[in-house]
Design a protein around this nucleic acid. Structure first.
Lengths: 203, 203
DNA sequence: TACTGACCAATATTCTAACCTGGTCATGTC
DNA sequence: GACATGACCAGGTTAGAATATTGGTCAGTA
């Protein structure tokens, strides 16, 4: 029980406390006690309570990233991989209240500046994934060369989350698989009726 | 100054007060006074303060809808019309703090149940626009017959707002016209490299 | 050197009393 | 009668003083 490093123990204890009580109500003292150490030691490892929270979110996020990367690193064509990513995300975020609250700013667990900070971290990390996937798609030839990776990843990120949110929000009337199909369909083929697949079609 | 109907005067007065002080701080009494009428009369026209707020949002929304419909009802092909819609939206919502706050739940002007209610109204109304545009697109042949109008409108709504938000959020690093181009590009052509424009490409 | 917990300033909570405001309705006006 | 009004009330909100808690520090211990 005391075999892990103090920092590790602190992160684990902090995670438990934050998950149970939320950012505000969890106290540094309780975290330290739960990690079987003094409050002073807490500050040897983290500059502030907020930093500890960020560390917890980052650790949680890392666990999600493993799944997410697995979903993306398959031999399937890129659009199908994106679909898998959305599915995995909905599943994971459905279970992980802490990540969800930190991303959407659900006030029950976090809010204000901390929530914004952790939301940014998640967004950035997940968008990296999309950038990577898009570049891989270009290499393998399944994504058009002309696609602007930076802005496309931003937009993909938003539609992706729209679908995830529709799934997590029980009051939504958009069935998950329909949303997924549509996402794939639009992202894959666009809206335009096939006519002139040659040059210069937009702007 | 007293030529308009009492209800109209009340809505205008309410709009001024709500815009200036926000939903909570604006008082029914001040609204009535500003409309040059008694507080009791207020309740002849509105069942509650909240209903008056909704009426104000609806009136504001209607003014936006005029512009939005104008942007959509042009002879241009549908994707280009959608682009115009996004541009118009960004412009209008950039100026109209009340609509913006009511849609995004910016707490300065509104929050809680009222904000949710007015957000839903706006979402529904704007999504109708998209549904209409998609159907028109199908008729004129510029939108694929196979796209699912209901779910597509939902997703389009989300990307559209992502672009608008990127524009309104000054800290965003995504230039508006790049975002617009990308939106058009993806929605128009999808991501897939042109290869087999025949059958069964998704799912 | 590595750690700790008593300590402090700042913030949060609780309590109470005064105050305000959404909504009603008896009364007045046309 | 139909319509409009403002005095009135209950419930909720604010203000502010008194109290308790907590993030963060640091002198002291092992």
């Amino acid at each position: 029980m005391t075999t892990t490093s103090p920092r590790q123990r602190l992160i684990e204890a902090a995670e438990q406390q934050f998950r149970r009580f939320g950012y505000r109500r969890a106290t540094v003292e309780d975290v330290a006690r739960a990690a079987d150490t003094g409050k002073g030691s807490f500050y040897l490892h983290f500059a502030s309570k907020e930093d500890a929270y960020v560390a917890v979110v980052e650790a949680s996020l890392e666990r999600f990233m493993v799944k997410a990367e697995a979903a993306l690193h398959t031999p399937a064509p890129v659009p199908q991989r994106l679909r898998a990513l959305v599915a995995v995300t909905a599943e994971h975020y459905g279970d992980d209240e802490l990540l969800r609250a930190s991303l959407f700013g659900e006030a029950a667990l976090v809010d204000g500046a901390v929530a914004r900070r952790t939301a940014d971290i998640q967004r950035a990390r997940i968008r990296e994934l999309l950038v990577e996937a898009l570049q891989a798609g270009k290499l393998e030839g399944s994504v058009r060369e002309t696609v602007d990776v930076a802005s496309t990843s931003t937009l993909l990120f938003e539609v992706g989350w729209a679908v995830v949110r529709a799934e997590l929000d029980s009051s939504s009337d958009l069935p998950f698989d329909v949303a997924l199909d549509t996402l794939n369909d639009i992202v894959g083929l666009g809206l335009i009726a096939r006519a002139a697949p040659e040059e210069g079609a937009s702007k």
